[in-house]
């Protein structure tokens, strides 16, 4: 049993949960974007890291890392584009 891999997988699952809770609880598009881009990406990072440790093959690890980089790039760009569209369309950020 590889405890480091297991801990990494658990952390990944935790961040996924946090992302979804944020998506459901946060008050407006902009803050929901915060929850999704940050929590889910890092959750995926921990999960893939755990899987890579488990497999133990450097090539598979590198492939998982490339996939993670792509997800990161895609979701950061998407979140910027959606946030911008919301602002330009006149969706005011929620204020307390």
């Amino acid at each position: 049993m590889n405890w480091l891999a297991l801990a990494s997988l658990a952390l990944g699952a935790f961040f996924f949960l946090a992302g979804t809770v944020g998506l459901l609880r946060f008050p407006d598009v902009h803050s929901r974007l915060h929850a999704l881009t940050k929590a889910d990406n890092v959750g995926l990072g921990f999960l893939l890291f755990g899987l890579a440790l488990e497999v133990g093959s450097p090539l598979v690890g590198a492939k998982l890392f490339v996939i993670w980089c792509l997800v990161l790039l895609a979701s950061a760009s998407v979140s910027h584009v959606i946030a911008r569209a919301a602002l330009r369309r006149g969706v005011e950020p929620w204020q307390r």
Binding site: F16, V29, N41, L44, I82
Partner: peptide, 23 residues
């Protein structure tokens, strides 16, 4: 409530599906 809010869940679907597929 806005269309963008609905789109956010496809974002969630994408990330989670990657995780499920890798597992």
């Amino acid at each position: 409530p806005t269309a963008a809010d609905r789109m956010l869940s496809t974002q969630l679907f994408g990330t989670t599906a990657v995780a499920l597929l890798a597992i």
